[in-house]
Design a protein around this nucleic acid. Structure first.
Length: 276
DNA sequence: ACTCGTGTTAGCTG
DNA sequence: TCAGCTAACACGAG
């Protein structure tokens, strides 16, 4: 599920529930998800500190922590990455899930802790959990945020042009390159390319200026809409991403293939591949 | 039994 | 060195 919109909503939940709370324990440390850190690393680095800020850049989320007892240097950043299927769940002191506003999977009831890969407990009894069946999510101290490109929501047309100006790779591969542009995932990329009627396989050096402008507009709109609607899966073309699917605009068959190493769907009529 | 996947990255090639 | 591509990662869902 997680692309920029899902991560943004996770950020909001953390901010609303445990901002300012003191960390009292770290539990359920899955060694694969949390590598290279150990439970002791988290314990000594975080316990006793408060969450003072919750930040996001692209799909990377992190919590900034206070000095100990208000004295000395700030603590490490607690980096959270949802991977392919992870989610953030906050539970209250009685173990019930705190609703996150728009999620349909956040069953407001007992929390099933079978898939918890890292749990942060707070003085007020709340717990922040990274829940991830697949274990492709990551929890790490002081994540290297500088390796990411600018957040997709912050990129204006001028910068967007610049990000697409180098190289010869396909536009879809470029949109998915987090070191260039942070936050666009597989579904958002298909959605914005469909909205702007551009072939996912078209090389970045073959894009016309008008196409780049249309794509930038589509990106901003797709991000805004999916954040408001509650996730990347709410895009208009997403329901057509299956065998036999047809374009929601023109009714032509949707085509499927691998572009930029990812499963890709596009309208065979409107997203023509004349210039590949 | 077998294939696929809303992400990242180590490793290879030109 | 860099741009670009592929395989691998883990494991549930269909």
């Amino acid at each position: 599920m997680p692309e920029l919109p899902e991560v943004d909503s996770a950020r909001a939940v953390i901010e609303r529930t445990v901002l300012g709370q003191r960390i009292v324990a770290i539990e359920d440390v899955d060694p694969y998800v949390c590598r290279p850190h150990t439970a002791e690393d988290f314990e000594s680095g975080l316990v006793g500190r408060r969450i003072v800020r919750v930040m996001r850049r692209g799909k990377q989320l992190w919590c900034e922590t206070s000095p100990l007892r208000g004295q000395g240097a700030p603590g490490p950043h607690l980096g959270l990455h949802l991977g392919m299927g992870g989610r953030i769940v906050v539970t209250d002191r009685s173990g019930r899930v705190v609703p996150d506003g728009d999620s349909t999977h956040g069953l407001a009831g007992e929390h099933q802790d079978r898939w918890d890969r890292c749990t942060v407990r707070f003085a007020n009894g709340m717990a922040l959990r990274l829940v991830d069946k697949r274990r492709l999510g990551r929890v790490r101290l002081d994540p290297d945020v500088a390796a990411l490109g600018p957040d997709a929501l912050d990129v204006d047309l001028r910068e967007f042009r610049r990000l697409l100006s180098r190289g010869t790779t396909s536009i879809k591969a470029r949109l998915l390159d987090q070191s260039v542009l942070a936050g666009i995932g597989n579904l958002l990329a298909d959605e914005m390319l469909w909205q702007s009627r551009i072939s996912p396989a078209k090389r970045v050096d073959q894009l016309q200026p008008t196409e780049v402008a249309a794509l930038h507009r589509a990106m901003r709109q797709a991000l805004r809409r999916s954040i408001a609607a509650g996730g990347s899966h709410t895009g208009r073309v997403i329901p057509a991403r299956h065998g036999g699917g047809t374009c929601p605009r023109c009714g032509a068959p949707m085509r499927h293939g691998t572009v930029g190493g990812r499963s890709t769907w596009w309208c065979e009529r409107e997203q023509d591949e004349q210039h590949g």
